[in-house]
């Protein structure tokens, strides 16, 4: 029982502030970049920034960086399954037009 507080990694406040400022900055960066015509790259930039921001929240605000291996595994499993759902279903939509539909 004496080791109770060791489970709570106390994150220094300056880390929170740094993460917070980065998140705010990236929000306005992504808003600005969307107005620049990058063609098909726009969505990749937007999603990369979103993934970067989400990672910061998960790692620092949600303490996963300081968490157990099991916590990290659960988070990764969740993301992996989300990607399974998105990519496998999209694979159908991406390839559906490759071969014409008979009779059409």
């Amino acid at each position: 029982m004496s080791d109770h507080n060791e489970q709570h990694h106390i994150v220094p406040i300056r880390v929170y502030i740094a993460v917070f400022l980065t998140l705010i900055a990236m929000t306005w960066v992504t808003a600005y970049v969307s107005t620049v015509d990058l063609g098909r790259l726009n969505i990749f930039v937007a999603l990369s920034i979103a993934i970067f921001k989400a990672s910061l929240v998960i790692l620092f605000f949600m303490h996963v960086k300081y968490g157990t291996k099991l916590t990290k595994m659960i988070v990764l499993a969740g993301l992996y399954w989300l990607l399974l759902l998105l990519f496998i279903a999209m694979a159908d939509l991406w390839t559906r037009g490759w071969m014409g539909v008979p009779g059409r």
């Binding site: 694979a91 159908d92 991406w94 390839t95 559906r96 071969m99």
Partner: peptide, 10 residues
């Protein structure tokens, strides 16, 4: 979904 109109490759 084999006959539902799914892509043949999928």
């Amino acid at each position: 979904l084999f006959v539902a109109g799914q892509s043949i490759y999928a």
